[in-house]
Amino acid sequence: MNKSSGVRYLRVDREDAGQRIDNFLLRVLKGVPKSRIYRLLRKGEVRVNKGRIGPPYRLQADDEVRIPPVRQEQEAVPDSGEVPRGLRAQLEQALLYEDDRLIVLNKPSGVAVHGGSGIRFGVIEAFRQMRPHAGGLELVHRLDRETSGCLMLAKRRSALRALHECLREGAVEKKYLALLAGKMPRGSIPVEAALRKQQLQGGERMVKVADEGKASRTVFRTLERYPGASLVEADIATGRTHQIRVHSAHLGHPVLGDSKYGERDANRRLRQLGLKRLFLHAHSLRLRLPWSEEELVVSAPLSDDLRQVLQRLERDG
């Protein structure tokens, strides 16, 4: 379903002040491709205070933004109706940290971060209902639907901007636990392989190692070795799509339970031990909160199903 609106004039409030115009448009024009937004900026169709601006322009309070008529794809299923009681309870139980600016939860595997493609409610739609007074509630970053673990949501747009700046500057330490196929070497193994996204026929999105891709760095550290599998901690210095999954496969040790980049035989063996999902878990976050300078350290425990897989591997070993 598409919708097209006429010319709009938006007044920038204090919460939006300091945000880049391109990021502002990506939020306001949900469903419009990035390429289209940058084309609007290049052609001068988007104006601030009647003047042309480029993507790096940072909005000021009381700026007037002119947005031309543009067709928006309605990617998400309309969020009318109540969040199912079971999902609401699941997410409340998953809370790890909350203050007046930030939520951190241990996102369950199988729950999408946002609605769309037949999914009525993701994490963000659910929390907008669960926290109706947090008017600027937005995802700070994303996790794949099958990946569990630490996920940040900002309650204010000013907090969102500050946290995005922390991510850009590498001031957020994000570590993952992953079970990889085969016997990984001991110690730390850095992988610096550029990644490029591509769209396959049928719309499936894949990521591959390519010299012309975006610079990406992951450091794997082996924690435990089992027969045919290794538990590792992955520290990502960049946050590319499917980064850990593609970098581990590039090493020849794909994440177990990964149907996209993994090994069929290894996945089949682990299914017999009870692994029914991707074994990738965002287990810790560390950052200095930009609004208080306090250090926040959050860790998300592994779910029972993943713990049981490790116990069975240890028993078999």
Rank of each mutant, 00 (worst) to 15 (best):
M1F: 09
M1G: 13
N2Y: 15
N2D: 14
K3H: 01
S4V: 13
S5V: 15
G6S: 11
G6H: 00
D22T: 04
L26Y: 08
K30F: 13
V32L: 11
K34D: 05
R36G: 00
L41M: 14
G51R: 15
G51V: 14
G54K: 14
P55R: 07
P56T: 11
V65T: 03
V65D: 04
P69N: 07
S80F: 14
A89P: 00
Q93D: 10
L96D: 08
Y97W: 00
G115I: 06
G122L: 04
E125H: 11
P132C: 12
A134L: 10
A134C: 15
L137N: 01
C150P: 02
K155G: 10
L160G: 04
R161D: 01
A162L: 08
L163G: 01
R168D: 10
A178H: 01
L180Q: 00
P185V: 09
R186P: 09
R186S: 15
R196L: 14
Q198S: 13
Q201K: 14
F220S: 03
T222H: 07
E224H: 12
R225A: 04
A229K: 01
R240V: 07
Q243I: 06
G257Q: 06
G262W: 11
R264C: 11
R268P: 06
G274V: 12
F279H: 08
R286L: 07
L287F: 15
V297M: 09
S303V: 02
V309S: 03
V309T: 02
G317W: 02
